[in-house]
């Protein structure tokens, strides 16, 4: 028996991959629902956006691409939906991290406009300023005078073009921005000292789960108003937007159950590996 158990330590990793594949695929094809409990950091962001006064604009630093869309897609999708629903105008950009960010944001917005908000208009309800480089310098420039950092939007319209970009005619600097929501695998912490620290503008992050551990400290010190952590954060935000579980269909909600199943397989694998380890130690005496 001990010898058999000790073999658990040497299971071929490819069997584990296959188990994860099957476990994760199952909830996609079988209707399984699990409850979602909303964490404080998600609720804080939701409530902060709910309190947005009229006339203010939200800036979304959507600096993610294919590598992290499993987590970041859902995080921007739910916030964009919330902004569209509340009719809060927003500006999309990607500072420093990836030039593909604005394109991916466009995909999410196009989907939302097509499926849920067909009356929302580019230039009025949102503007995509595209990619910009410069890290903290770019952030400071955006805060002081947005036109010094961006001359045109991603479609080639001048920021002073009142016909195509009426929204940008009332956005000059950081005073017009209610919140900066930075979504990427690992949001740039420079937003905190150079924008929140200097101008007091509220900042929120949407980050990969792996990075969240380093950002929780900013929530405690109130340097961040909220944070969406991985798929979980996106699913929680979707739950706040749609209390009725049947109405939820964001990326976060779709992935959270398969993720739970995948985690279950990993937990079982860790337990089996430990049983194998102790059995092998016992066999050696």
């Amino acid at each position: 028996m001990v010898e058999w158990l000790s073999r658990l330590q040497t299971i071929d990793r490819r069997w584990i991959y296959l188990s994860i594949w099957v476990a994760c695929a199952l909830p996609f094809v079988v209707n399984i629902k699990l409850p979602v409990y909303v964490s404080p950091e998600t609720r804080r962001l939701y409530e902060f956006i709910e309190k947005c006064p009229p006339g203010k604009v939200v800036m979304v630093d959507s600096a993610w691409d294919a590598g992290s869309q499993g987590e970041n897609w859902g995080q921007v999708e739910v916030v964009f939906e919330h902004l569209f629903r509340r009719r809060i105008p927003f500006i999309v950009t990607s500072v420093e991290v990836t030039p593909l960010g604005p394109q991916f944001a466009d995909k999410v917005i196009e989907k939302l406009v097509r499926e849920k908000f067909p009356d929302r208009q580019y230039g009025v309800d949102w503007v995509n300023l595209g990619y910009t480089k410069g890290g903290w310098q770019a952030m400071q420039q955006i805060a002081k005078d947005i036109r010094q950092q961006y001359k045109k939007d991603s479609r080639g319209y001048s920021l002073d073009d009142a016909e195509h970009l009426p929204l940008m005619q009332r956005v000059r600097n950081i005073e017009d921005i209610y919140l900066i929501y930075s979504v990427t695998y690992s949001p740039m912490e420079d937003w905190i000292p150079f924008v929140h620290g200097v101008y007091g503008t509220p900042i929120a992050f949407g980050c990969a789960g792996i990075q969240s551990t380093t950002y929780y400290r900013y929530l405690l010190s109130k340097q961040l108003v909220g944070m969406l952590v991985g798929v979980r954060g996106a699913a929680e935000y979707d739950a706040l937007l749609h209390p009725d579980i049947r109405e939820r269909n964001s990326m976060g909600t779709r992935l959270i159950v398969p993720q739970a199943f995948g985690h279950l397989v990993i937990i079982v694998a860790v337990i089996l590996g430990n049983i194998g380890y102790f059995a092998a130690r016992r066999r050696r005496g």
Binding site: I20, A25, E71, L255, Q259
Partner: peptide, 18 residues
């Protein structure tokens, strides 16, 4: 959290494939 992130990346691709 690392496991959570890697899993999410895989799930997005799995969803695409299926």
């Amino acid at each position: 959290n690392t496991v959570m992130t890697r899993m999410a990346v895989f799930l997005e691709r799995l969803q695409f494939l299926l």
